[in-house]
Design a protein around this nucleic acid. Structure first.
Lengths: 188, 188
DNA sequence: TGAAATCGTTCCGTAAACGGAACGATCGTG
DNA sequence: CACGATCGTTCCGTTTACGGAACGATTTCA
């Protein structure tokens, strides 16, 4: 990749690898032996001068008994590469759409900003929403009777009335929202 | 590593890649273009005949806007989160993986075949599952006390005990499953 | 104090991952 | 029915990741 001949790769991986290795008191040679890879490979990796193969990454992560993402740090979330829709308090990214015989399902990832409360108008009758919190604490549901859910908890409600989303605890919250819209006249 | 000359790599990655690509309605050529890699690379990857470099994986995961772990399924995942490939009765597709400070979330689409009942062994303590039915009727939850949900309904349960999946009514059922695996020891 | 062991780095030949190009197949279109 | 566009696969030359070996520097031990 480097047009200068000396191809470099993400040095952060090298730092993380060396950190994990030393935290375990392993020598570079010993790690290479356990992972079944060459010392040159480990050395080059720690210096960020190699662009490792998935196989190599598996072997090394396995020898350290960490998930591979502990080394790659997995840039993580969809990076908004999709098209985030901006409301006042809720930023959402559409993840998937499923069209079924009786209904359409939209799955979104929500970022609910702190401090503000967002109200969503009533959907047509029959629409239901299912929300799983994955970070922070969310207060959501029908505007008349919202509920509170922490990370790992789940709330479902009928969305044919106005409903609200808010993050509690002064911190931004994340959640997965599944919206089910039945189409009674079976499409097509 | 393939002493027969024809080196093969994990075919599961290829299947997952093709699934994610097609779910987005992208052609192989288009994905290669967006990721800035050669078509030969994508093709070889989907057929499991290449052992990709990390750089290639980043590029492709980025173009699909999924975390890399959505492709690799990260064998060393925290809490031994077993590969969500179930058995004969349930076919699953990994849709997204979210890595949060306190937990990892995996979202899958399940096809639960008719007639058979699938039992899943207990996950480590703290793992919870959330299932939203999008087609048919599903009987699921702890093996000791499963519940029934029709399309549009939702069931959550603690997955630290054996649990079951079954489609009722003699028809295949579809569902979205969200698995939450807390990683309390903040992986060091 | 010398010899052996082990450390991490570097050199090197081989295997293979890479992108570009060429290929036949499959479309819509005029 | 040609025609161009695009599909996914395959071929090929270049680049480079790979493991083994050689290296000098430290450390360990008799």
């Amino acid at each position: 990749m480097g047009a200068d001949g000396t191809s470099r790769f993400d040095p952060a991986i090298g730092r993380r690898l060396r950190g994990l290795r030393e935290a375990r008191g392993l020598s570079l040679s010993e790690l290479a032996r356990r992972a079944g890879v060459g010392k040159a490979t480990v050395s080059g990796l720690e210096h960020g001068t190699r662009n490792p193969t998935l196989e190599t990454m598996y072997a090394i992560a396995g020898a350290l008994s960490v998930p591979m993402s502990a080394l790659t740090l997995d840039p993580g979330a969809p990076a908004g590469a999709a098209s985030p829709v901006r409301g006042a308090a809720v930023v959402s990214t559409l993840l998937e759409v499923f069209r079924e015989p009786g209904a359409t399902y939209e799955m979104l990832r929500l970022r609910i900003l702190a401090g503000v409360e967002q109200t969503s108008p009533a959907h047509p009758p029959g629409v239901t929403e299912h929300l799983s919190v994955i970070r922070g604490t969310v207060r959501t549901g029908p505007a008349a009777a919202p509920l509170t859910a922490a990370a790992g908890e789940h709330i479902s409600w009928a969305a044919d009335v106005p409903h609200v989303y808010a993050a509690l605890g002064g911190e931004e919250a994340h959640a997965i929202l599944l919206i089910r819209t039945p189409h009674d006249p079976p499409l097509r």
